[in-house]
Design a protein around this nucleic acid. Structure first.
Lengths: 243, 243
DNA sequence: ATTGAATCACACGTAACGTGTTGTTTTATA
DNA sequence: TATAAAACAACACGTTACGTGTGATTCAAT
């Protein structure tokens, strides 16, 4: 049995907050002293733990009240739920890290800033990964999305650097003849990176290429932009002709 | 140049929020149309990015105003700062994940909930990683702390499970004779886990053991509690005697 | 029994916007 | 180039999740 002060000390939650939670009926202490002082038992503490976890996940107290009241889920279930949310948050942070690393490299290599990725970073700072990938839903199925997110998360700083350099090289040579040796070389280098990242899942590659052509540049294939994509396309077409 | 609507669409930040940021002088658009409509340029976008990053870090808008106005940091510096904080947040989430996984296993193995670790999780939900480790500062130096954090993060689900099982086994046999075969076996199993996790850095092990004896159970060495520690101690002492 | 600390109930204050309204400006279309 | 539709500005009021008092009451330790 904990008084409100002891509970506050143990959890770091202020007395006023517990007071408020009692007031709105979120956590009513299971018993009281004769004088009216609140006494919290272990079930109450359990409830508080869940409330704080859910709050951390961004739910409103009103929503939390619904969740903790309605779901008859056991501890195991709610822990699993929390674990899933934490993993999603980690995914988001991983993407943020990638994006920020990308910006850093782009400033370093190109001396300029890719605005579309800045916009994506801003979005990532306030929204869920799922929401941001929503725009890709028309071109990629769920399975492909998963693969791409995972691939993105597993990309190391070095991979990122090579990827950036390969594309940066293309960007700096957009005007050269698509049939030239150099053009072929640049695209070959790019292809190597693609293969390194995505393996040789032909279907995934196809869908991604399709998505690339239809979408404005975004976080996933950063820093590929329209110019780069069109250059690669022209080189491919020239090759086809040669055959 | 972006109108407030375009900027909102690109970033996912609502018009009202941008309106508010303008109102409190946090982000004033660098120019306006003759009619008074706001126009945001690229510098404004970068400022917004920084503001949201700082907001994510938990600063109030008032604090953020001070920070972005006073500090003359370059974008590279800002990005690097953001990267560092994102990595720290990932560390914290990793610990949270470990802790929750631990609770899950402990419920599975022991059928009951360990309250001290629940309290620790609540604190993790609210605090910085550094704060959590503060209490260990008296017993471990900075280098050792780093090692432990890293170890904690790298522990796989399977490692966690084995660790939990080893300790759980001890917990269920606290009353047996410290000199018995079984006791020796239990501690040996525990020692194996320790070695697997920490290698054979004698100094680190010594300091940790010292910390363990002086601190109330905490999240780092979860789920070792006083009972388990004393049991292991008794077994060791018995062994010494035999020699 | 006393007294200092803890608690209660209540009130007002605050941050960071959301939501709604009205009048004005911009943009798209005919 | 006229006009309707869309976007925007400026203002007001509402909301969430508490913080910060305040005086009265209860609890815990001496």
């Amino acid at each position: 049995m904990y008084t409100i002060g002891k509970l506050s000390k143990n959890t770091g939650v202020t007395v006023r907050t517990l007071d408020y939670y009692d007031e709105i009926g979120l956590i009513n202490p299971s018993s009281k002293t004769d004088g009216g002082h609140r006494l919290y038992n272990e079930d109450d503490v359990m409830r508080l733990e869940r409330v704080l976890a859910l709050k951390y996940m961004g739910f409103s107290l009103e929503q939390i009240k619904d969740i903790v009241n309605s779901s008859t889920s056991t501890w195991q279930q709610s822990i699993q739920q929390q674990l899933e949310m934490i993993r999603r948050e980690q995914e988001r942070l991983k993407m943020l890290e990638q994006a920020l690393t990308g910006v850093s490299f782009s400033i370093e290599f190109e001396g300029e800033i890719n605005w579309s990725i800045i916009f994506n970073i801003i979005q990532l700072y306030q929204q869920d990964v799922e929401d941001i990938f929503q725009q890709y839903k028309d071109y990629l199925n769920n399975d492909e999305m998963r693969k791409i997110i995972e691939m993105d998360a597993q990309m190391s700083k070095e991979d990122m650097k090579e990827w950036m350099e390969a594309i940066s090289d293309i960007k700096n040579n957009l005007e050269i003849d698509p049939g030239s040796e150099k053009a072929q070389h640049l695209v070959k280098r790019w292809l190597n990176q693609v293969e390194k990242m995505f393996g040789n899942d032909e279907e995934l590659l196809g869908d991604m290429w399709n998505a690339l052509q239809n979408l404005k540049e975004g976080i996933v294939f950063y820093p590929m932009d329209k110019d780069v994509i069109h250059f690669i396309e022209r080189v491919f077409l020239t090759k086809e002709e040669l055959k």
